[in-house]
Amino acid sequence: MAAGGDHGSPDSYRSPLASRYASPEMCFVFSDRYKFRTWRQLWLWLAEAEQTLGLPITDEQIQEMKSNLENIDFKMAAEEEKRLRHDVMAHVHTFGHCCPKAAGIIHLGATSCYVGDNTDLIILRNALDLLLPKLARVISRLADFAKERASLPTLGFTHFQPAQLTTVGKRCCLWIQDLCMDLQNLKRVRDDLRFRGVKGTTGTQASFLQLFEGDDHKVEQLDKMVTEKAGFKRAFIITGQTYTRKVDIEVLSVLASLGASVHKICTDIRLLANLKEMEEPFEKQQIGSSAMPYKRNPMRSERCCSLARHLMTLVMDPLQTASVQWFERTLDDSANRRICLAEAFLTADTILNTLQNISEGLVVYPKVIERRIRQELPFMATENIIMAMVKAGGSRQDCHEKIRVLSQQAASVVKQEGGDNDLIERIQVDAYFSPIHSQLDHLLDPSSFTGRASQQVQRFLEEEVYPLLKPYESVMKVKAELCL
């Protein structure tokens, strides 16, 4: 049975990233139509530049190519590739079939990587351009969430054990800070992308030097003109047959890092959902379990974690691919890159769409948070109580021993009897502590235990987050809708 299948058929496997999760716009960027249309555009740009620099290419040939950029006979191309065992030459023939007058000058002087690699770089750039505003929107939604809850005390956790208090907004800023680093890295790697350009079979530009009869300047002009037509500021000066596969490492490393950030955020949300302090959106008709109707599973956060793990592992592909590119190139890269580049971007696209949807509907339960604080705060307040007693004339050592005994009794009630923490009640009825009984409410005010959390939130948002989001103001209103 021949390899390949009808990918629109229910009898043929289709990647869930495309069929179930990723956005239509990201799927289109990695589609065959987008790819092969870009090949034709690159052939047109090459012909236009070659004509401008004096090669015998007519206006009629150029116009014929322009008129057929979208006229792609995919069936013919597939048949040609089956016959020739070469995808680029299959599309040269297919393009030439609908451009008979231009057929002889299509791909003039070029090698397969002229269309293959340059198209990949265009796709990487455009895919990054799709991700950047999506990530900015996630940051914006979380920034709104953090600002609104900047002063809401909550129990902090280290080692997932109760620690000092923080605020809900401050905790959210930990998430935002990681995503801001990801946004900066995505922008950097996007701006650092260079075009492969017009380089020939081993990167020496020998074929173009021959076409222009040894004119170095025209060869350099050709490279520059096509690079500018493709919208790049610069091209690699040095290439082998391909652009260095280190570029793929750079791009997928940034995406993998984004995956790590999203995994951490969504894990926190899942843990908070278990504590009943916070939940992701839950639709009115949504079913959490087929057997347990009360369940409210954090399905979206779980999906993000599941896909983020996949995204983090994909960076190993370009690392290994770059390491086995012998001399000017081997074909070890080809099949692998067809999979890992598309999957990385479709996965990143999915987790950003999902995280935006989550961040637009996060639900906080202040009463649950308050109750958990009441359970733990008495123990945390013991040092403040000791200091207040010393100020009232008591002995630190005597007070410490009193607190120690009462704390152990209260802990026994919590752990052995399943009761509430009654340390404060014990202190309130103990005559030894009568000098500070009137101060206990103040000493137990949760806001006095959150330090500068709310001020940190305000400063972080104003100095770091809002300036970073400013270039994306025009796209901030787009909502994230999930079908599944």
Rank of each mutant, 00 (worst) to 15 (best):
A344P: 07
Y472R: 06
V254N: 15
D87R: 00
R270G: 02
K229G: 05
L331P: 00
Y365D: 04
D120S: 06
G4P: 10
F28P: 01
E25P: 05
I339H: 12
L152V: 11
L179E: 02
Y114G: 01
L124I: 12
I358M: 14
Q416F: 14
D191A: 08
K199H: 02
N185Y: 09
T354C: 15
K470P: 05
G214S: 09
M278W: 05
Q439S: 13
W43G: 01
Y21P: 00
T154M: 10
R85Y: 14
M26R: 01
S334Q: 03
G419A: 09
T382G: 05
R452C: 13
Y466F: 12
P24S: 12
M299E: 00
L352F: 15
I57W: 03
P56C: 08
F145D: 14
I339K: 07
R245K: 09
V315K: 05
P366I: 14
D268L: 03
N384P: 13
Q63H: 07
Q285H: 09
R85S: 03
E383P: 02
R459Q: 11
W45C: 06
V168Q: 02
G451S: 03
D445A: 12
G156P: 00
L183P: 00
T350N: 15
S301I: 09
A206I: 03
G200Q: 08
S434M: 11
E383M: 02
S253V: 09
A260M: 05
R33W: 05
R40V: 00
M299L: 03
D445K: 14
S31I: 02
E425N: 15
K82D: 15
A453R: 04
Q408H: 11
A90Y: 04
G96M: 11
K295Y: 06
R396P: 04
L484A: 15
L346T: 11
D441K: 11
D248W: 05
L255T: 10
S12G: 14
V405H: 13
F236G: 02
L84I: 04
I238V: 13
V219Y: 00
F208H: 06
L209E: 13
R329W: 04
G5I: 13
H310F: 07
P162S: 09
S438L: 08
I57Q: 01
L341V: 13
P24W: 11
D398F: 09
P10H: 15
C172E: 01
Q61F: 06
D445L: 12
L255G: 02
R83N: 13
F433V: 05
R137H: 10
L44Q: 12
K284E: 10
R14T: 15
L307G: 14
S434Y: 08
M299T: 08
C340P: 00
A235W: 12
T450D: 03
E376F: 05
G451H: 05
